[in-house]
Design a protein around this nucleic acid. Structure first.
Lengths: 235, 235
DNA sequence: GTTTAATCCAATGGTTCCAA
DNA sequence: GTTTAAACCAATGGTTAGAA
């Protein structure tokens, strides 16, 4: 059971950041200390939604609307380790750094929960994403993070293989989607080597255990496992 | 870190059972083995509700309704260890046995989940309660089990203290509610002895770690903790 | 009054569907 | 076409209001 090296890249990961990037978490342990209310719990509970009128999915911005430029994040491109994406693109070191940022946001949420005597999440939950937004990390969102978890998993579990894959896919000029798909298969191999316990593979890794195993990866493992045992039974 | 003895009582715990009681879980590993469907997951997934018209809370049974006698369970009374409740009552050994039954139902759900490559619960979840119902254990339900978890916790963590409390409250002729309230305080003491980590107290115990820490107990611990630290600061 | 358990409800994990 | 992320939705943990 080895822990992959945790040394972080120190160079700028994102040249094109819209003023966000690596803001340090210098705030102390905030929140009012006087919270003895047993019958009425703290209620200051990380901005949970006040029940509001259900809002219909907005269909394309009306041309006359006020232009607060809520542009979306630049797309990822396949970069090799250490390489910074140029143009309106983000690189994979930056992608992986977002996962480490989430880990720090989870730490903060856990601290707060413990101080308040509330139940303490062990995983990156909706609450953590909400907290990240509140702390200004508007570039972090659930669908994005869930989409690439298994890529980050490979990065955590076998950095060499991960780095090799990145170089290979960059050379071939493959797009991010192709690289992302390719990340599944080394993980399936690792699951096989661990008695198909992909859950366990995640939980045993210090950095990974805060992430839910993606459904697709679990299903892939299940599928491959049954193929394996079939080929034992017949011929 | 000690594991309290796990020897089960063998005598009948419930003389008044309406045909349920201790049915053995002799069924093997059921479910069709041919479930290779990756894109379409098994869908046989333990009877999740088909979206149905919302049903209003029924206000008192209409006198003309067909009388399928869905009577409810007999109330618990405070019994001492080994004592069987007489009359239309259930004893506390029987109550604690329900928790052990839930643990076995969780085991079954976990088995099934692993076979199907689905995510595997570590706690007694809604799914487990649903499974228990499906297996005929209609006498198990979520509100009841949640209501008495901390009583079971004391039984698991300090059987002597738990037994003593039962005898004491029985002698005094206290009702179940009073006994239940009294169970909180030894647990708060144990939390104190463990750096106020009540979550940890639960998780470190083999039988308890499948149960969520009750909100009330967590709040009580938090409250007592802050009282303790206050009395350090002033005078 | 005490005790049980159906019902409700906001917040969740997970995904779809669309905008860019 | 690819990629992003707002919005959705069924199922959850937790509780309330009520029945026995």
């Amino acid at each position: 059971m080895m822990f992959p090296d945790t040394a972080a890249q120190n160079g700028p990961l994102n040249l094109n950041s819209k003023d966000h990037a690596q803001h340090e978490h210098s705030h102390g342990l905030f929140g009012p200390p006087g919270l003895l209310a047993l019958p009425e719990p703290s209620s200051d509970n990380e901005g949970r939604q006040i029940p509001r009128k259900k809002q219909k999915r907005r269909l394309s911005r009306e041309p006359g609307e006020d232009g607060d430029d809520r542009t979306r994040e630049h797309p990822f491109i396949v970069t090799e380790p250490g390489e910074v994406a140029r143009g309106k693109k983000n690189g994979l070191d930056y992608l992986f750094d977002l996962y480490e940022q989430c880990a720090r946001f989870l730490d903060e949420v856990q601290q707060m929960a413990r101080e308040r005597g509330e139940k303490c999440p062990t995983k990156v939950t909706n609450q953590v994403f909400r907290h990240a937004k509140l702390k200004g990390a508007s570039y972090i969102n659930k669908p994005k993070m869930r989409h690439y978890v298994h890529c980050y998993a490979l990065h955590c579990l076998d950095k060499d293989k991960s780095n090799f894959l990145r170089k290979q896919f960059k050379e071939r000029g493959e797009n991010v989607g192709a690289w992302r798909q390719a990340c599944y298969f080394p993980l399936v191999d690792m699951a096989r080597d661990n008695g198909w316990d992909i859950e366990g593979v995640f939980v045993r890794n210090e950095k990974l255990r805060i992430w839910y195993v993606p459904t697709k990866l679990r299903q892939l493992c299940h599928f491959e496992k049954s193929k394996d045992s079939d080929s034992c039974s017949y011929e």
